[in-house]
């Protein structure tokens, strides 16, 4: 019985953590390049809506996921244009993205409310899925969870072990140094902001195609913001971000565990937990001291211009 609670809790934590995982990996990449994109919430919503709508109209899940990523990437490109080309205020531009994403998805999505569409279903990975308990918990999930498993180490390897990753880190930390070595700062920032947006869209698609397979207005419910906090929590390291995402996922599914354990906490109080937990996490991770050592992007949010202040 308790074992059952455990496995259910862990596996639902992983499911709840997966959209956070994608969104925070995306934000991590954008921030590593020096662009602060506060619009994750908006991009996730556009992703969630687009994914659902495409699945509903075509029944093609792969197409749905790709479309979700592309739609969110378009919004991200807008932010990149504002931040990189116009050198506008990244905070305001990010907020604008939240409004726009939430507004457009709600606007176009209204006629999909209450509809049913093709959703992602679980499949057991041969061999691995047969391992007792672990197999059930980790390897009997939907395909996007597996993508999460693979993408994180891949991003880590990319960041720290490849030339392109090194360039990316340099652009976020010392753009003028990168520029002097022939790395195109603007292009790098565009690319990773857009890629980051695509990841946020993937996180959104996970919500509407797998986690709760339907479309509800503002269904991301602040996950985009939590993803931004996760990036800080992870000191811009994808592996820590992964652990953090699953941890946050665990917090947000705590209510099921407590329900099963028959601990009476009202549902609305329970729903506060992820947000309260996020605040608590921020209390412990907001110090400036560690950041430099771990290569936090010190040019984060600062537009680059070769001529400096002129």
């Amino acid at each position: 019985m308790t074992q059952n609670i455990m496995t259910t809790t862990i596996s639902s934590a992983i499911r709840a953590g997966t959209p956070l995982l994608f969104a925070s990996i995306g934000e991590l990449l954008a921030e590593r390049s020096g662009v602060l994109n506060l619009g994750v919430e908006g991009m996730m919503l556009i992703g969630a809506f687009t994914g659902f709508a495409v699945s509903y109209n075509t029944g093609n899940l792969l197409l749905a996921v790709v479309a979700a990523m592309a739609a969110a990437a378009v919004l991200a490109a807008l932010h990149a244009f504002m931040s990189v080309t116009l050198r506008a205020n990244q905070v305001v531009s990010g907020l604008a993205l939240v409004f726009l994403g939430s507004g457009l998805s709600g606007f176009w999505g209204q006629r999909y409310v209450g509809m049913q569409a093709q959703a992602l279903s679980n499949f057991s990975i041969p061999f691995l899925g047969k391992i007792p308990i672990v197999g059930e918990v980790l390897f009997n999930r939907d395909p996007l969870v597996y993508v999460g498993y693979i993408i994180v180490p891949l991003v880590w390897w990319f960041l720290y072990k490849t030339k392109a990753g090194m360039n990316l880190r340099a652009v976020g930390e010392a753009p003028s140094a990168a520029d002097a070595r022939g790395i195109n700062v603007s292009l790098t920032r565009y690319v990773y902001t857009i890629v980051g947006g695509a990841f946020a869209g993937l996180g959104g698609a996970y919500l509407s195609l797998a986690y709760t397979p339907m479309w509800v207005e503002n269904m991301s419910a602040g996950r985009g913001w939590i993803a931004i906090v996760l990036v800080i929590f992870a000191i811009w390291d994808p592996l820590i971000a992964m652990a953090g995402a699953y941890l946050f996922g665990g917090i947000s599914v705590l209510q099921f565990g407590l329900q099963v354990a028959q601990i009476p906490i009202p549902a609305n109080i329970m729903k506060m937990f992820p947000y309260l937990f996020t605040i608590i996490v921020m209390l412990f991770t907001s110090g400036e001291k560690m950041k430099k050592r771990f290569g936090a992007p010190s040019a984060l949010g600062v537009p680059y211009s070769r001529e400096g202040k002129m």
């Binding site: 090194m166 360039n167 880190r169 340099a170 930390e173 010392a174 140094a177 990168a178 070595r181 022939g182 790395i183 430099k292 050592r293 771990f294 290569g295 010190s298």
Partner: peptide
């Protein structure tokens, strides 16, 4: 780049 090593800085780009 402050978080890079000397060699990495020279290898950059």
């Amino acid at each position: 780049v402050p978080s890079f090593s000397v060699a990495e800085n020279i290898a950059l780009g």
